[in-house]
C-alpha cells in the first residue's frame, strides 16, 4: 500500500510540475493582458492606473475602462494594421506553401539515403539565429545591395529596384524564415504516402499530373493544414521581419504593439491590441488543434 502511495505521489509530481509551470507562466499571464487592456494609461511606474482604486476612506471601486478598445475601433490605424496583418499572413502562407511543397515532394522522392541529409539541411537554418537570417536580407535587398548590383552588372536593369522597405521584402523574409515549418509537416505526410496507389492509378492510364492532383495532393492535405497553421498564426504577430525589412511602410499588428509599448509607453493600448490579436488567432488555433488530434488518432 505504501509503495503505491509513493507511486501516486510520483505520478502527481510528474504531471503536476509541468502543468503548474505552464499554468502560471503561460496561461495565467493572459488574464493580465485582459485586465490591463481595461485599465487606463498614466504617467507613473508601471504606467497605468490600478484597477481597484480607493475613492475615499475605505471605499473601494473597480474602474473598468473600455477606452482602449474604443480607440482601436475609432482610429483607422489599428483596423488597418489588423487587416494588413491578415492579408500579409495569408499571402505569405500561400507563397511559403508554393515554395515548400515542391521541395518537400522532391525530398520525399529522393533516393533513400539522401533523405536524411537533405532534411537536416532544411532544419539547420532553423537552428541558426532567426534575427541574423532576416538581417542578411538587408544587405541583399537594399538599393545598393547584392541583388541590385548583380542585376545591374548583368544589364537586366539600369536603375536599382526598390525592394527593401516594401511589402515584397517582407514576403521574401517570411517565406525564407518559415520555409522549414512548411516542409517538415509536408514531408511527413508525403513520405507516408502509399506508392502502390500511384502505381494503380498509372496502371489504369492516369497521367502523372492527374495522379498528383487526384491522389498525392488530397492525401497530403493534413500536411498542408499543419504547415498553414505553423506559418499563419505566428506571422500574424510577427515583429522582427516587418520591422527590419518592411521599414515604416509596412504596418502590422505585432509591430504596432511594439511601438505602443516601447515608444509610446502605452501599456493598456498594447494590451488591448494583444487581446484583439489573441481573439483573431483563436479560430485558426482551434482548427489546428482539431486537425492535429485527428491526425494523431489516425496514426494510432
Amino acid at each position: 500500500m505504501r509503495s503505491r502511495d509513493r507511486f501516486n505521489l510520483g505520478k502527481r509530481a510528474l504531471i503536476g510540475l509541468p502543468w503548474l509551470w505552464m499554468a502560471v507562466f503561460f496561461l495565467l499571464p493572459f488574464l493580465f493582458i485582459l485586465k490591463l487592456s481595461l485599465s487606463e494609461a498614466a504617467l507613473m511606474q508601471p504606467p497605468y492606473l490600478p484597477f481597484i482604486r480607493e475613492v475615499s476612506d475605505g471605499m473601494v471601486t473597480m474602474v473598468v475602462n473600455f477606452g482602449n478598445y474604443l480607440l482601436l475601433l475609432e482610429d483607422p490605424l489599428y483596423l488597418n494594421a489588423l487587416l494588413n496583418s491578415i492579408e500579409i499572413a495569408a499571402w505569405s502562407t500561400l507563397l511559403t506553401l508554393l515554395v515548400g511543397y515542391p521541395m518537400a515532394y522532391a525530398i520525399a522522392k529522393a533516393p533513400h539515403n539522401w533523405r536524411l541529409p537533405l532534411l537536416m539541411l532544411i532544419i539547420l537554418p532553423f537552428w541558426t539565429s532567426f534575427l541574423i537570417r532576416v538581417y542578411a536580407w538587408i544587405g541583399i535587398l537594399k538599393n545598393n545591395g547584392l541583388l541590385n548590383n548583380l542585376l545591374i552588372y548583368l544589364g537586366i536593369i539600369d536603375q536599382p529596384l526598390e525592394i527593401l522597405y516594401t511589402p515584397t521584402a517582407v514576403y521574401i523574409g517570411i517565406v525564407y524564415s518559415y520555409l522549414p515549418f512548411v516542409i517538415l509537416p509536408l514531408y511527413a505526410t508525403l513520405i507516408r504516402l502509399d506508392d502502390t496507389l500511384l502505381e494503380a492509378a498509372a496502371d489504369l492510364g492516369c497521367p502523372p499530373w492527374k495522379q498528383f492532383l487526384t491522389v498525392t495532393l488530397p492525401l497530403s492535405i493534413p500536411g498542408v493544414i499543419a504547415g498553414t497553421m505553423l506559418v499563419f498564426i505566428p506571422v500574424m504577430g510577427e515583429f522582427v521581419i516587418p520591422d527590419l525589412l518592411g521599414g515604416p511602410n509596412v504596418l502590422m499588428i505585432g509591430k504596432l504593439m511594439w511601438t505602443e509599448f516601447f515608444s509610446n509607453k502605452d501599456w493598456p493600448v498594447a494590451s488591448a491590441l494583444a487581446a484583439v490579436l489573441l481573439l483573431v488567432l483563436i479560430v485558426p488555433f482551434v482548427l489546428w488543434q482539431h486537425f492535429e488530434s485527428r491526425n494523431r488518432e489516425s496514426l494510432g
Partner: peptide
C-alpha cells in the same frame, strides 16, 4: 489542458508571450 499549454506556445506570437509575461 496540459497538451494545450504545451502546444500553444509553439505558434503563439512572441509579442503576446513577451507582453503577457511582463505583466505577470
Amino acid at each position: 489542458s496540459l497538451l494545450l499549454m504545451l502546444t500553444a506556445p509553439l505558434v503563439m506570437p512572441e509579442v503576446i508571450l513577451g507582453l503577457s509575461l511582463l505583466l505577470l
